[in-house]
Amino acid sequence: MISFLGVYKYYDSTPVLQNISFKIEKGELIFITGPSGAGKTTLLRLIFGSERPDEGEIRVGDFELSKIRQSEIPYLRRFVTFVFQDFRLRQDLTVYENVALPLFILGQKEKDIKQKVYDTLKNIGLRHRADSLVRTLSGGEQQRVAIARAVITNPRIILADEPTGNLDPDTSKEVMTLFRNVNAMGCTVVIATHNPELFQSTPYRVIHLKEGKFLQ
């Protein structure tokens, strides 16, 4: 599903990722971990098409990311979605509108959208907040909305960058449960975190990064 082969990435000639090679299989849940500045976010940004590798090859599904054209990126982002630490939600819109946004982009019918959004909100326990403005929600609730927005189009891959970074331990557990549920439905989930509590005593694979190098 995702493969890195000898990938290097530099920022102003400073290496951020060095000779990274690995594969993530379809339906896997995987943690990318390491201290701040290890290159976790850069690695996710590479998978999401926000950055291009300086050397090496990255393949995500049928997309060859070292050669991807700008016009293909929107289609990559329908295949791979992203959950950000700072949520990146439209604060002026309601929960419903935020979750429905990717479906509107896909040009789906209003009736279908309504059904899907309410079903998704029900699954994440936010059906009752559908008409609330996002800015009135707590951090944990906003992250759940962000996850709902990421899963609503049934993507093949979900990337999450420090998804529990702004949340308390209880809310973090709830968010992780949501990711496990999404993964159980067959979606590949890649979570970047520096919080060992999230992946310790879990059966999932962990990739360790330090100073841009692969330590696994």
Binding site: S71, P74, Y75, L76, R77, R78, T81, F82, R88, L89, R90, L101, P102, I105, L106, R149, T153
Partner: peptide, 15 residues
Amino acid sequence: EEIEILKLLGATPSY
């Protein structure tokens, strides 16, 4: 900011 969010969600340039 709104446009950046749309780009992250897979909106095409024409959209």
